[in-house]
């Protein structure tokens, strides 16, 4: 979308987010999430071990790292879907460690899932309406008396249709979500999350499985969120996307934050390359390594493009 795109067709990046040298755990000027000493073990495996992490407000932050780095687990912990072994964290200055997932969402920190969770036997429109917060018709005592909530319902429906139109799903509003394609479900899940008017949107691999033709519009949607004043934190393996829209990148490997910084600098950081290649040295996962090498090659290409 035009407003988010700079003169040369590249989106405008937010800068000056951090204080001091970019390093793992660097302080931010205006953090929305501050996490301290979060650890989570599965059996003997330390899935997440984050000493200190701050997510800048009003910017798009990418969380990257090889498979099994602990990104999804960190998401689960920050959103209350899983309980850490230790650690505390705040959202908007308020401690939310140990707060159950639905309360976290009500505070304005809304997430999507790596494995899409469209509600299959609800229509697309019902999926959307479910996202709206604070509906009085959702209380049992009022539910049987439509006059309490009819007005509100109409307003919600109007907003849902508007969002659906933006995500090009309005024609499908009466279809079961189960009938959507994988990419459309990703879009629906994201649109549904936006129905709750969040302040922080956390997207777990929004691009995975999305047809390349849809990729561009998805990128635009994410950039739009920032323009509307939301903060975005997303996990992604697609490095083009990361460098295209992210203002800040956090790199995880084996549960730890190994690097942080502006996308260009991070990609050049030897620690990152190590993380991607190193983490699989002792594993025999066949073609995974080539995938990682591909990713790194892509980065190098991108950098070359940028320099021209």
């Amino acid at each position: 979308m035009s407003s988010s795109v700079g003169a040369q067709g590249a989106p405008i990046k937010s800068t000056g987010l951090h204080i001091g040298e970019p390093a793992p755990g660097v302080k931010k000027v205006d953090p929305i999430i501050v996490a301290d000493g979060i650890t989570r073990q599965f059996g003997g495996l330390m899935a997440v071990d984050v000493e200190h992490l701050e997510i800048p407000r009003g910017a798009i932050t990418a969380l990257i790292g090889p498979n099994g780095a602990g990104k999804t687990t960190l998401f689960n912990l920050l959103t209350g879907f899983d309980k850490p072994d230790s650690g505390t964290w705040t959202f908007d200055g308020e401690s939310i460690s140990g707060v159950p997932a639905f309360r976290v969402a009500r505070k304005g920190q809304v997430r999507t899932f790596q494995l899409t969770k469209a509600l299959g036997l609800l229509t697309v429109l019902d999926n959307m309406k479910l996202g709206a917060k604070g509906q009085s018709g959702e209380s049992l005592s009022r539910a049987v008396f439509p006059w309490f909530w009819k007005k509100e319902e109409e307003a919600i429906e109007a907003r849902a249709m508007e969002l659906l139109a933006r995500f090009k799903l309005d024609a499908k509003k009466d279809d079961y979500a189960a009938s959507l394609s994988g990419g459309q479900r990703k879009l629906l899940e994201m649109a549904r999350a936006l129905m709750s008017e969040p302040t922080l949107v956390m997207l777990d691999e929004p691009m995975a499985g999305v047809n390349p033709a849809l990729t561009q519009s998805l990128l635009d949607h994410i950039l739009n969120l920032k323009i509307e004043g939301m903060t975005v934190l997303f996990v992604e393996h697609d490095m083009h996307m990361v460098r295209h829209i992210a203002d800040w990148v956090v790199v995880m490997a084996e549960g730890k934050v190994v690097a942080e910084g502006d996308p260009h600098e991070v990609m050049a950081n030897p620690a990152v390359i190590d993380a991607y290649l190193g983490s699989h040295h002792d594993q025999d996962l066949g073609d995974l390594d080539t995938a990682v090498v591909e990713a790194i090659k892509e980065l190098a290409d991108d950098d070359a493009d940028d320099k021209q």
Binding site: A118, L130, E189, A193
Partner: peptide, 11 residues
């Protein structure tokens, strides 16, 4: 359909 999805929407 999926209780985690509903939970993630603040219910």
């Amino acid at each position: 359909e999926d209780e985690d999805a509903v939970r993630a929407l603040g219910k």
